[in-house]
Design a protein around this nucleic acid. Structure first.
Lengths: 228, 228
DNA sequence: TGACAATCCAAACATTTGTTTCAAACTTTT
DNA sequence: AAAAGTTTGAAACAAATGTTTGGATTGTCA
């Protein structure tokens, strides 16, 4: 007779449940019993399959980083402006897409805000490459060599805009509920951030007015290729 | 003989210590004994002076909101662009000034990210007014009536840029340490955000190029009046 | 001073925490 | 089918949690 749940499935169920709870309450705020209750397994399973709570947490972070995808390695085609726009669209979609399990982003955000010893891993493995990538894209749009700190701040402006919608979600839902609703909200937000950013860069570095203005033109749409 | 510590001082010591610990670990991650140890008082003091841990937390939030200042009510003078610039300078200073106790900002940030029932209070009392103010300032700069959601996203772009430096601090310190150091870092960051934002608005709404570009001009400096 | 209330403190309270134990149930191997 | 190795589950563990208790200490006012 087949076992009701295989050992591997138990492990997966624990990781998924752990991701959801860790994502909502962070490492400290989460109890092992919350996880096992949600996963429908025994309390001891956590210590059997993973050494302890900390080890399980690391496993969850690794999973989240993995599912977050190699955004940094993605190639975008077209003019530098189009590439930056493509990046913003992909990044925001990764952050807000309701089809993806929400805990991937949430658990990473929690770790960024209330660091545990695991933060170094996350920065090294995903934040740093993404940050570097944004700097490259911005440098290309600017079309000239920029001093490092200036480039860092420009990249921070882009990432800050994107992450705001994730990290301040409970706030935004109260202040501007329209922004959180509607099936096209991801595209609206992406389009705004990209347009805003390109407008700033365009003005700061005296590029041509870049054609875009007002509603979404076909040129402005992110190619389906990017819309992972 | 005078008591070593007056009851009022005990209360204050508890609130300050609680602010520091809550700011670092959030409500869940904080234990009453951590607070009392840091404050140098007995464990029971918390339940004596404040009803329970939750009541103390609310008191801390109220204090933080109070010390955060009535940024929303501050009047800025000059052209709309100057007013927006003044707001950014003041806001960023409030967020990053090392002379102010860091926990004011941190405890609010923690609450935004991992909401407790107290979030409604915070949004109503400080976030909402600030958000509304930014929308007004941006509307003035744009010089035309804008649809609500558009205004919301523009405000989000400004606040997102500012808050990034607070919420991603542990990350930034690893990625771009230069941004976290130096006595002029607050001014450098403020100046960048204001310039970046005004450049975008200027380009989006076809205003005149606004003169600013490159290094800080005298016009660009925030008047001492604003530099609270 | 002496009585009264306010404040403080050590100890204990009942829960909840992460983890361990060990026997039963199951799967695989012999 | 018997033996060996995995996986599960109920119960128990010590440690830590928020809170309460009762008595000691302090300040106030008659």
């Amino acid at each position: 007779m087949k076992r009701r749940t295989s050992p591997d499935e138990t492990r997966e169920r624990i990781v998924r449940a752990a991701g959801e709870v860790f994502g909502r309450h962070g490492f400290d705020g989460t109890t092992v019993r919350q996880i096992t209750r949600r996963a429908g397994v025994n309390v001891a399973s956590v210590n059997y399959h993973f050494r302890d709570k900390g080890e399980l947490y690391m496993r969850v972070l690794r999973e989240a980083k993995c599912l977050a995808g190699d955004l940094a390695a993605t190639e975008f085609r077209g003019a530098p402006e189009e590439q930056l726009r493509g990046f913003v669209f992909t990044f925001v979609r990764r952050l807000l897409d309701p089809n993806r399990p929400a805990w991937h982003v949430q658990v990473i955000t929690q770790e960024m805000m209330r660091p545990t010893p695991a933060l170094d891993f996350l920065v090294r493995e995903m934040t740093e490459p993404i940050f570097r990538r944004v700097r490259e894209l911005i440098g290309a749009v600017a079309g000239r060599k920029l001093p490092g700190p200036k480039l860092d701040m420009l990249a921070s402006s882009v990432l800050g805009q994107c992450l705001f919608y994730v990290r301040s979600r409970p706030m935004i839902e109260r202040l501007a509920p329209e922004l959180s609703r509607g099936p096209d909200r991801i595209e609206r937000i992406s389009d705004h951030i990209a347009t805003f950013t390109l407008a700033a860069l365009c003005h700061l570095f005296n590029k041509r007015p870049s054609a875009r203005k007002g509603k979404t033109s076909n040129r402005g749409r992110v190619p389906a290729l990017y819309a992972v």
